[in-house]
Nucleic acid binder design. Structure first.
Length: 788
DNA sequence: TTTGCTTCCGTTTTT
DNA sequence: CGGAAGCAAA
């Protein structure tokens, strides 16, 4: 990022001609612009209102992205700005990418570049790199993630002699993030909060941490925003440059902005005052990570003269679904107010079913999906949206048994996986020998006999001499401080490093990465590992190398990796999606299953305890988000019993169920024909009808189950618990259907995607009982394993 | 330095 | 109950 790019010359202080013959403007203008076609009046107004602050309140499924992209096309086509003069911010890379693609289709290559379309973080980074020295960084600064952040904080705590048991680094990291989200640097932390951590040392630690980051020439995610805000505040001339430059600003998902982001936007908008924010207060579900709904609620006050346009015409869901969602969200108080409608069909009423427990819930959902499948519904049009990820397991297990293809969305991102982070650390340390965090991460991975003790010595030396760990290592292999074995090991490692860095210019980065991973013994380490995940990890490493090849150089790759690397591995074939409600925002499915609508789980107890009414309202918005994902069918479930932390607990139907407008909801019995939880009871909130948990069938069953499970192998318990439940269709069906004989014999070695390698213990038609090396005994369908 | 055992804790997650 | 993290013993 050293070469000054086109910033200085491109459009700085230069007015683009209103219309340029032969340019985009002329092309798009002919016969009423193409990008305006098919917009409804409100959407069109939102696209054409270019001057002054504008808030577009875009309900779920009302064509928000369409408006944003059309608006950009309009700005470009009308010659009001060059691509480089539009600032367009999103929260995720995915959103940014989608927007880029859609603009490209609208206006063709003209939008190429759109250099300032990106995430808050990507754009701040870009700005920060240009003026890094003004905030005490070098433009090549490293962006560290949460993991590095915590390790660094541990060191800080240690250096300050603070017991990291009583005051965990995680908590401090959380606190610092929190401050950064609110735009507070160490000097501005409120005294009360500063005192709350480590007996008043909170602010001091924050300060020390920031200093350490500067020494390491590093910034954490929070810094990207906070430091660029500081840059603007302390350097009015720099701010002015950007204010002049950005003739038009667009902000996606404005309800998710936190305080720094808000302040940052506000500063920039003071230039041209053409800021358009798009969002939906009813879909604000990230309060717990700093998003401040008030930002959107306050818009008119913050930006005087602001215009508000509501998009309420919904193009996604049927009327009943919208009515149910509307009825629910109407229970929230702090909202701008907006009611979705559709001219489309009424459709099916969303259903609410009570089931006995989570097992029956998974079974019922599984059966319904199979029925839908028979009706011709594609599996990738079906999603299961849960409140908490532990709910996923039961569905996964059920689907494995059924042989129903599914995919779990979410989970650790690609670049957060240990193996990827390790590989990146190797690359970082090769490219930038002074990257202490990278050094520390991999110095003993794979094991080189350089454990905590040796690292501590290195640290001491580095600190004493004020040099990086790599340099410290170089000088320490010349001394007697380390034991001979360690010294040799370290010497070898440094030799490796030198050899690798010498090849940076010679080899394409992909090849270099392969070499490094080979020679360091890293690949080897995983090849020797026989756990279930090892194969996947090696696969991920290959994917990393493949991804690297897309970049022009190793440095370019490293610069982008921390912000842009995505997890999207598009595995083929239609599958049911399982994900959290949070992960579902922005997506849509024909059919949506919404299990676990019970008090305590949804709304989540923690949310209620910590946030009170605000928490409840956010949970309700989450429910709203869930419902509005459905195009045609929404199916809600609640279980009467749920196992939480190993204990069976009797649960109460969620209050949200009572809030659904009765006229638009269908209450159905569970598939087993027995409706355990009585929805009618919950409607009138008669909690007394629930017997004490000591006498409920669930508790008693749990007692029996626990007793039995202790004396049984896992596989046996599985079989047994089904038998105990009376007639269980699934097992009978599967066995009956399987006239085919398995191609595996008892004793065969097999490999399962989820459970890893194992040995076949028994064969029953197309069902195998397998003793997995790691996961224990499981019954699986033959089609789910491969010969190993 | 590494291992196996104990303890603790338990919602959501982008960058 | 199950996973992660931390800690004492080999």
């Amino acid at each position: 990022m050293s070469a000054p790019d086109s910033f200085e010359e491109a459009g700085h202080g230069y007015e683009p001609p209103a219309l340029r013959p032969g340019g985009i403007a002329a092309r798009a203008r002919v016969g009423g612009a193409r990008y305006l076609e098919g917009l409804n009046p409100e959407q069109r107004e939102a696209v054409e209102t270019l001057d002054g602050p504008l808030l577009v309140l875009a309900g779920a499924g009302t064509g928000k992205t369409r408006v944003l992209t059309a608006r950009m096309a309009h700005i470009l086509a009308s010659g009001r700005a060059f691509p480089g003069q539009i600032l367009a911010v999103t929260f995720t890379n995915k959103a940014a990418r989608e927007m880029k693609e859609r603009i490209a289709t609208l206006v063709g290559a003209a939008a190429e570049g759109m250099p300032w379309l990106g995430t808050f973080h990507a754009i701040s980074t870009k700005i920060l790199r240009r003026h890094a020295e003004l905030v005490g960084l070098k433009s090549s600064f490293t962006i560290i993630d949460t993991d590095d952040q915590i390790r660094l904080l541990k060191q800080v705590l240690q250096a300050e002699n603070i017991d990291d048991k009583r005051w965990p680094a995680r908590t401090l990291a959380y606190q610092i993030d929190n401050w950064k989200n609110r735009g507070l640097d160490p000097a501005h932390v409120p005294a009360g909060e500063a005192a709350a951590f480590a007996d008043g040392k909170g602010a001091k630690l924050y300060h020390v941490y920031q200093d350490r980051l500067k020494v390491l020439n590093a910034a954490d995610f929070g810094d990207l925003l906070l430091e660029s805000l500081r840059l603007f505040r302390e350097n009015p001339d720099v701010l002015k440059q950007y204010q002049d430059r950005f003739r038009y600003m667009l902000v996606d998902e404005y309800q998710d902005t936190n305080t720094v982001q808000y302040l940052w936007l506000k500063l920039l908008a003071q230039g041209r005052n053409n800021i358009c924010c798009v969002g939906d207060d009813d879909q604000s579900i990230y309060g717990w990570r700093g998003a401040d709904v008030d930002n959107i609620l306050r818009f008119e006050k913050d930006f005087p003269g602001a215009k508000i346009i509501r998009l309420e015409r919904n193009y996604r869901s049927t009327a009943h679904i919208l009515d149910v969602a509307a009825g629910l969200i109407a229970h929230n108080q702090g909202r701008l107010g907006k009611t979705l409608f559709t001219d489309g069909e009424k459709g099916d009423k969303p259903t609410v079913s009570g089931v006995w427990d989570s097992e029956e819930e998974a079974r019922t959902v599984g059966e319904e999906i199979e029925q839908l499948q028979h009706k011709g519904v594609r599996l990738d049009e079906i999603a299961i949206l849960v409140r908490a990820s532990f709910q996923m397991r039961e569905f996964e297990e059920r689907f494995i048994t059924l042989g129903l293809p599914y995919r779990v969305i979410g989970g650790p991102r690609f670049y957060e996986r240990a193996e990827i982070r390790d590989a990146l650390a190797y690359l970082r340390i090769t490219a930038q020998p002074d990257d202490d965090l990278a050094f520390e991460r991999i110095i003993n991975v794979p094991k080189r006999g350089l454990g905590d003790a040796s690292i501590q010595l290195l640290h001491d030396h580095a600190r004493r001499e004020r040099i990086s760990l790599t340099r410290a290592a170089r000088s320490m292999i010349e001394t007697e401080e380390l034991k001979p074995k360690q010294r040799q090991s370290l010497r070898d490692f440094l030799a490796d490093l030198d050899r690798w860095s010498a090849q940076i210019e010679q080899k394409p980065q992909g090849e270099l990465a392969e070499t490094i991973l080979e020679e360091s013994g890293y690949t080897d380490m995983w090849q020797k590992d026989r756990t279930a995940e090892a194969a996947g990890r090696l696969e991920n490493l290959k994917e990393l190398v493949r991804a690297m090849e897309e970049f022009p150089s190793l440095a370019a790759f490293l610069e982008h990796i921390s912000l842009v690397m995505d997890t999207d591995s598009q595995d083929a074939g239609p599958r049911v999606s399982i994900m959290t409600l949070h992960a579902a925002k922005g997506l849509e499915f024909e059919t949506v299953f919404l299990p676990g609508w019970e008090e305590g789980l949804f709304p989540h107890q923690r949310s209620l305890d910590d946030q009170g009414r605000a928490g409840l309202e956010e949970e309700r918005r989450l429910a709203y988000v869930g419902l509005t994902r459905a195009k045609r069918r929404a199916k809600i479930y609640f279980a009467t019993n749920r196992r939480i932390r190993g204990l069976w607990q009797t649960t109460i139907p969620s209050r949200f169920l009572d809030e659904l407008p009765e006229a638009h909801v269908e209450v159905v019995d569970s598939a087993s024909g027995r409706s355990y939880g009585n929805y009618a009871q919950s409607r009138f909130a008669n909690m007394d009808t629930y017997r004490s948990s000591y006498t409920t069938p669930g508790w008693q069953r749990a007692q029996r189950r626990n007793a039995e499970e202790q004396s049984e192998a896992k596989g046996g318990a599985w079989r047994d618990s089904s038998a105990r439940r009376g007639p269980l269709t699934i097992e009978g069906e599967l066995v009956a259907k399987s006239s085919a004989t398995s191609s595996f014999d008892k004793g065969a070695r097999v490999f399962h995607i989820k459970f890893g390698p194992g040995t076949v213990a028994a064969v029953d038609g197309n069902k195998l009982t397998v003793d997995f090396d790691k996961a224990g005994r499981k019954m699986v369908l033959e089609s789910f394993v491969q010969a190993a």
